[in-house]
Amino acid sequence: MALQLTKPFVAALSAQIPVAVSVTLAPGLLGGLFGGAQHDLDLETPSREVDLEQHKHEDCDHGIVYAVPKKKVSYGQKRKRFLADTKALKPLTNLNRCPACGHVKRMHTLCMHCFYELRSFFAKKTRDAESLVDKKQPPTLPAHDEAFIYKNKIDRPHYDKLKDTASYVLKYPRSQVYKKKDKSRD
């Protein structure tokens, strides 16, 4: 991030830069060391710009005051901001009962559990229908040809992880059941 500064601001800066002060005090002694610095602080030229990237490793801030908070944010104010009412989780009011399984579901939607059950039911139906149709058997090949064309799959160590789909595939949790009211309580 290179900060480009215009001329009047640099003029205000130059008073507080220790390099410049030392140059004015002892030009004879330090002239050899800070000759470059003197050249940099030539403010006479109209569009002079200073690149602060060059000075970033020095200790001082060159007298520049950046925008910072005026005071420390108190513990209470911080907690107020973090735990505001709008950020809290709101209770769901649009809940309903699934007519098929009796568990809780959102209104105007299908129950996900029943949806997946129906989907697997459809899949089984299509599989059964396909099994009835006679499929064309692939031509029988000699052994060495078959070994070349249909290569045996090599088991690699990360395949076991991939086979265990329950560990990494996200799954909808089963929703709650409507409980019957206990008569013994009342």
Binding site: P91, T93, P99, C101, G102, K180
Partner: peptide, 23 residues
Amino acid sequence: QGSGPLPKKAGSGGKGYKHCPPP
């Protein structure tokens, strides 16, 4: 399981659930 008729509450007007006001 879980799909029997809901017990009727006293103030529910024949429905299985009580009207719940918004939070």
